[in-house]
Amino acid sequence: MATLQGSTLEAIKNNQDQLLDQWINSLESNGATRNLKEHELRQQTSGFLQLLANGLQQADDATGNAEEVRRFLEKLSASRAQLGHDSHQTAYFIFALKGPLFSLLQRVYADQPALLAEQLLVVSELLDSLGMHTVRAYQITREAVIRRQQEELLELSTPVVKLWDGVLALPLIGTLDSQRSQTVMESLLQRIVDTGAEIAIIDITGVPTVDTLVAQHLLKTVTAIRLMGADCIISGVRPQIAQTIVHLGLDLSSITTKANLADALKLAIKRLDVGDSARG
């Protein structure tokens, strides 16, 4: 297999400044420097070039598997992902180096065409593999960001509020899917145990559509609440939703439903009073 020649390395080292300028120009003309400060970019590019030259020198094989270079790229793509750059812009950071580097090699090996071809291939392979590594690292960071946001959204979307002594309310906003309704169910049941509330009101004013799946989730939640010994009222059934439910032929007869939260609260207080006076 062809290896990187010492003279190539020499050339890179000796022409660092020129390479840098051309590289940054190329990056800027392609819009890959969005949201990046000038000095930051210069720092990153020169840092990478330094590492690359050192790494190539130390590594025995031409692929230059220098751990340091890879770590640098991982850090770089992580910061790019957080800045909101897309994968293309991030990968372009590496690929933009190709042009300046190739023209440099062309100049160095002007009179040795065979050597030039070989060195071009080696450098190209090296940059490609580094580029791929950058994209992979970028993707991993993005996925971590998405996962974290999903978790945050789940937590945000299930606030259980105490509405009255012994009455809990859960205002649902947004579409209910199975994972979310599971979280909703769990947090509501846990709050019922913690507070000893007798009545829970689930307000679905903010749920845009109710289909069979959502209705089934609601039924499950209501049944689980009943099993634990508390009562459940569904409130905020909008006219369109009532129509959909009837059209779909869903049977919600086992659930107490109210048109709005105020009515549900009124009913809940009434039930509590009845229970108290009967006990008293």
Partner: peptide, 28 residues
């Protein structure tokens, strides 16, 4: 009366399709 059912137990029973109709329940 069946009292003090834990949330996890309630969820499991519902998922199993055992809604225990006719069983009275209370919180504690």
């Amino acid at each position: 009366m069946v009292v003090g059912m834990q949330p996890a137990v309630a969820i499991t029973l519902v998922e199993l399709g055992l809604t225990l109709p006719g069983v009275s329940t209370a919180l504690n």
